[in-house]
Write a protein that binds this DNA or RNA. Sequence first.
RNA 1: GCACCCGUAGCUCAAUGGAUAGAGCAGUUGACUUCUAAUCAACAGGCUGCAGGUUCGAGUCCUGCCGGGUGCGCCA
Length: 640
Amino acid sequence: MKNLQEKLGREITVLLEDAYEMSGVEPSFSIPAERKFGDLSTTLAFTLAKKTGSKPFMLAGDIAARLQGKLAAVEEVRVAGGGFLNFFLRRDDFFTAQRRSLTEPWAPPARKEKVIVEHTSINPNKSAHIGHLRNSCLGDSLARCCRFLGYEVEVQNYIDDTGIQVADVVWGLLHYRRMDLDAIRRIPDLAAYLWELYAEVNRLFAADEALAAQRREVHRRIEEKAEPEYSTCLHVAEQVLLDHVRTMERLDIQYDLLARESDVIALDFFKAAAAELADRGVMAPSSDPGKQGCLVIHYDREKIEKIIVRSNGTITYVGKDIAYNLWKFDLLGRDFHYRPFHVYSDGRPIVMTASQPAASPPARSFGRGQRVYNVIDVRQSYLQNLIAQVLVQLGHPEAGANFIHFSYEMVALTPACVREMGLILEPGEESKPYIEVSGRKGRAVKADDLITRLEEKSLREVSARNPELAEAEARLLSHVIAVAALRYFMVKFNLNTVIAFDFKEALNFEGDSGPYLQYAVVRLNSILKKAAAADLDATSGAAGLAPLPEGERELYWELVLHLSLLEIQVEFALQNHELSSLATYAYGLCQKFNHYYHLFPVLAEPDPARRYLRLGLVLLFKNKIETTLSLLGIEIPGRM
RNA sequence: GCACCCGUAGCUCAAUGGAUAGAGCAGUUGACUUCUAAUCAACAGGCUGCAGGUUCGAGUCCUGCCGGGUGCGCCA
């Protein structure tokens, strides 16, 4: 459909050029909700009417007359409503082209741009929670969409291994629990252990300023590499990071590179950036007496001074982030060292930055992106905007334009959910619409717990439906279904919709849910499997729709039309930063398939021509839905 | 105080400025001797927070108001 629309647009422009001023006018198309309005519709007449000051309806009539019979793919052009131009396609031609595309492998356009997607970036001091899951699911699907469209994609996960958050739990382990490093190493599930400890020490810090001061002292000692704090910090950060990587691997989410803040610091990335920032006058000493000795950047949009270098000479988070993002665009003039970190079960390596050359560094290079997506929640908008501003001020407008904050709203908990988890609501919270998740307050649903809970529910459902299944196989199916439920739930909302998390909704496997989508494909695969067993070739059959009875033909055609939109849908999702539109597209296709499935039997159809046409449609459905779902990280189980 | 986001069916959410505002859940009713009922069909449910404006056309854009959320730290 994408090629057809582009061609149609060009044809129309050429045909109308003599009569109308077409510069800057690009005909755009949509599929009308009602078939009586044709297969494709354009509002071109309204656009031109505005330019010329004439009546849309009259203009549309004239345009239709000029186009009638001159467009290769179009049977008829009609005017409807106040001036809509509706196109009726040559259905058999279009259908034949769609069927042919099934036997040709998908070839995205070759693109030179390299895209870097940063997502996840969880503080390595406790287990991941539902808030992080939204980030990772969005980021991973975003990366998959970019790959699908032909971009080279590198997925990075930024690890703040030197921040105060890690220092909090280091203090808790060493000075509160009074453990030594050996004892810490023996803690079986460190991330989960720290989940509790992190919440506990933060309660202490809030209540006792002396303890909070101790925590800052621990942080300082870590920065000075003093023992035992430094080694403990390294151990904690690495173990918890490994825990996060494993959690995300359960969801089929992988990273290419783990970029550590400690390496940004050790390799003096900021120094390189600072020289440039000072030269260009972007960063300067603060004139505010309250910020004496600080280096600041004036952020125009918010009309504020943001501290980049503290009066004690240390660099703030934003400063390090500016340097890191300059590196992503290869604008820093420096590079990390690299070392292998982990190998995924499918054999893909995951690399970590290093401050020293490694014995066996990876063969590939990292960074040097032309476009950068930072998947970070909306609460960091102003810092992300500041970085974009700095890129421009440093003389890199193209990098500034290609620096994209992929912003999304937070995940929160409903008050009912907080109560259900046995946590206490503070005064006034009962009447709130939702309550922010907070690792620091221990108020969140742990990612691993939620995944496990989804797997358990799937297992009950799978076992009930397939009692003869071996447990190992049932578990495998349950896992795939649980992942679909979670990943679909995490991307189906608009980015600026706050997800007020609720177990009942997240654990729903019916209707607008991941398992619903899988179920449609499982049924459709079952038809294809039986057809293959009966030696029916789904790719053969009639070239036109004529053999279908009239009532079916219209529906069949509408389905072909919607199935052809896949590539347009992916591009739309990427352009508008709305992966939810892709989820909605997948859901719509599955609904359409289920509807068709109930109306028209495939294998039982006695007329061979009709049977082959239906089989062909089933194959088209399989191809498009499976591709869409793969972009959302959803696999299809063998049975359900 | 300033900035950003949100307000659509009982609930949770959709709807590139486009034709009669759609789904799921919950409710009522019906469909498994049939390619898997994690499904389908039907009914019911709406002053799209309020008031103006822009235009061929507004849930969508602009202004004001009401209600809710978030951000603005020598934390990250």
